[in-house]
Design a protein around this nucleic acid. Sequence first.
DNA 1: GTAAATTCTATAGATTTACTAGGGATTAGA
DNA 2: TCTAATCCCTAGTAAATCTATAGAATTTAC
Lengths: 137, 137
Amino acid sequence: MLSHKAKYALKALLYLAEQDENHISRTVEIAEGANIPKKFLEQILLDLKRGRFVSSKQGKFGGYYLIKSKNEITLAEIHRLFDGAIALLPCASLNFYEPCSDCKTESECSLHHGLVLIRDKTLKAMEGITIASLVKK
Amino acid sequence: MLSHKAKYALKALLYLAEQDENHISRTVEIAEGANIPKKFLEQILLDLKRGRFVSSKQGKFGGYYLIKSKNEITLAEIHRLFDGAIALLPCASLNFYEPCSDCKTESECSLHHGLVLIRDKTLKAMEGITIASLVKK
DNA sequence: GTAAATTCTATAGATTTACTAGGGATTAGA
DNA sequence: TCTAATCCCTAGTAAATCTATAGAATTTAC
């Protein structure tokens, strides 16, 4: 399941993607438009900025805007930024790999192999969902 | 990501699936064989029993054994039993559906649609992974 | 200088996770 | 019938995580 943070991030990105080119959106505007708690959204937008999905203009008349094409922002990326690994266990993860401490036996290898299959399919599916694909309902 | 509970459940089921027909496995035997904390495993086995994946024999020389074919126990079922919904949000879930309180707008519908696509693909993938498919490494 | 906005740090409350503890109930066999 | 072995059940607990909220610092336009 997605965390609220990831869900809010997607909704915020959708909101930004629906605005006119060159429009700068204030946090409060996004918060009201997408129904997200404002102070929580502040943190999320900063995370999105650190992840290079959006950029900001500070000060009066400042706000946020997309810097990555809505065709190139995928669900997979947002999941990784806010909720971490897409794989079901760290030992099956590409970007968050860790060996499993309790997996030394035969059954471990088997589990691992199945989870890598799942990861591949889920990842491919998630990479197919972009902000653009969501906007054009 | 899978919880430890779900991971341990899978490992315990794998252990049981690898035993001879009619063999009854004690909790401590599974715990040592699959490297799972024993008292934690007790709870997990009870959950698996309530879920009708295993049954037990009580008293001296008791233990656990599979009652569902290892070809019919899927990762999807174990995920649902221990970790709940497979979908990324409750509003996209088949078995754990709940409407999203904050989703009243256009962007909600869009998000929903994409997440249903993901759910369908992930579910199909998870239903393809059975205990039997994991045993025969 | 002032107002409006982002940015940063801290923190609080609730929930969940991953166990652990301790005993009760059941059964087999001596 | 006693005893040991085993499953069964309920609590509790420490740590982490999640979901925010608070407040002040910084930046910018005018």
